[in-house]
Design a protein around this nucleic acid. Structure first.
Length: 302
DNA sequence: CTTACGGCCTGGGTGC
DNA sequence: TGCACCCAGGCCGTAA
């Protein structure tokens, strides 16, 4: 599940391997997940790669071609859940579900593999790309503390939803949301606006620490993720809550819970991350007053 | 406008 | 052995 640290790792690998290389040829497999495969086939061969960057969870591959008018286009790639971008020798047998093969002028091959085909690939002009990415929020590693606190405090949605919302912050997914909230000791169903400034400051540092450490360990490999050389990451061994339902909290030892928050599996420690009171104006006379956070009982397939 | 939620894409894993 | 079903994450449409 490539999120910011995984995409960053892939991008660093590609940035070390690709700039200056020319794409000689493109071979396509299944293309039903690509918006305009013909555009790729037409524009890519002959292009030279100038740089590879990350924007949120997107990979941007900048291209230039002398005999094209705009000479500069870029490839915008989203890995979805199971996407992989790997460079290797063309001799290496390609894994199943490899759908794009870029032949490079150094004799190597760049491949896109995606079991579920939830990813996306398109070739765009600068203007089109900026239009597409323009609505995304700030990068959590670039945001200032003031900016981060103000943004989240202004919203009444659940903090889990806000961290996952790419229009608020770009690049965070389910794993790093849960890991960050655990570290900041904040329950995923708390509302942004109800968080104390001190809690938001804690969350700011938690997010940064978690992402930075995850990048250092080259991302989390849960099922399919590998870097641009095909190697798994190591941060899954540092997960404190993600997929640890029933196991002991690393802080207090009590069992980690799983609940559906915002339609997403959420892992947290009910002791370190106390649930919010039941939401606002409730029918006045509830029989008893269950303070337990109802939505956090697992089950209830919503 | 904001928020919540269901559905959709696909295929691997699980459990009967 | 086969098969139905759950689930994953991001995104979009819709409803309140």
């Amino acid at each position: 599940m490539p999120e910011l640290p995984e995409v960053e790792t892939v991008v660093r690998g590609l940035q070390a391997a690709l700039p200056g290389k020319r794409i000689l040829d493109l071979r396509l497999g299944k293309t039903d997940f690509i918006e305009d495969p013909a555009a790729l086939a037409q524009q890519l061969p002959g292009s030279r790669i100038t740089s590879v960057r990350r924007y949120g969870k997107f990979i941007i591959v900048d291209l230039e071609s002398a005999n094209r008018n705009p000479p500069e286009l870029s490839l915008l790639i989203h890995l979805g859940m199971t996407g992989q971008m790997v460079t290797c020798s063309p001799e290496v047998p390609s894994p199943p579900h490899t759908h794009l093969f870029f032949a490079l002028d150094d004799g190597r091959e760049l491949r896109y593999t995606d079991i579920r085909r939830f990813g996306s690939i398109r070739i765009l002009t600068d203007v089109a790309r900026k239009m597409l990415l323009g609505g995304l929020g700030v990068d959590p590693l670039e945001a200032t503390q003031e900016e981060f606190v103000a943004k989240l405090h202004a919203r009444r949605a659940r903090i889990k939803a806000l961290l996952l919302d790419q229009h608020v912050l770009r690049g965070i997914g389910n794993i790093y949301t849960d890991e960050s909230l655990w570290r900041a000791r904040i329950h995923p169903a708390r509302l942004g606006a109800n968080l104390k400034h001190q809690e938001l400051r804690r969350l700011y540092h938690a997010v940064r620490d978690v992402l930075t450490e995850a990048i250092r360990l080259r991302g989390s490999s849960i099922s399919d993720y590998v870097d641009s050389a095909g190697r798994p990451g190591g941060y899954q061994q540092r997960h404190r809550v993600y997929q640890r339902e029933g196991k002991g909290c690393f802080r207090c030892g009590k069992p980690i819970h799983r609940a559906i928050v915002n339609g997403r599996s959420s892992y947290f420690c009910p002791s370190c991350q106390p649930a919010p009171r039941l939401r606002g104006r409730r029918r006045r006379s509830l029989p008893g007053r269950s303070l337990a956070y109802e939505r956090c009982r697992s089950s209830s397939n919503k």
